[in-house]
Simulated scan of single mutants.
Amino acid sequence: MKSLKKTRRIQVIVLLFVALALSTGLIGYAMRDGINFFRSPSQVVEEPPAANEVFRIGGLVEEGTLVRGQGDTVSFSVTDGGASVPVTFTGILPDLFKENEGMVGTGSYVDGVFVATEILAKHDETYMPKEVVDALKEQGVYKEPDADS
Rank of each mutant, 00 (worst) to 15 (best):
V44Y: 09
P41N: 09
V110D: 02
A83E: 00
E46T: 10
A30Y: 05
V54M: 13
L20T: 06
L20Q: 06
L96K: 14
E47Q: 11
L22N: 08
G25D: 03
G112T: 09
S77Q: 11
V85A: 10
G34M: 04
L93P: 11
K143A: 12
L136T: 07
Y142R: 09
P86H: 15
A19V: 12
Y142S: 00
A51T: 05
G140Y: 09
K137S: 01
P86Y: 13
Q43P: 00
E63R: 02
A50Y: 02
F114V: 12
G112S: 15
E63Y: 06
P145V: 13
P49A: 00
G81N: 09
S108K: 11
F76E: 04
A21Q: 01
S40N: 07
S84T: 07
V74C: 06
D95L: 05
G81T: 03
E63S: 12
G58H: 14
D134S: 00
T88Y: 07
L20F: 03
S3I: 10
P145A: 14
I57S: 01
T90A: 15
S84M: 07
V85P: 06
V87N: 05
L22Q: 07
T65D: 12
I119S: 02
G105N: 00
G105V: 04
N52G: 10
L60R: 05
G102Y: 00
V14N: 02
K122N: 15
R9Y: 13
V67P: 15
D95S: 05
F76G: 01
F114N: 01
P129R: 02
L96D: 12
V61G: 11
Y127Q: 11
L15Y: 12
A116M: 09
V78Q: 07
M31G: 07
N36Q: 08
G34Y: 13
T65V: 00
N52A: 15
I57L: 14
Q139A: 07
P49W: 14
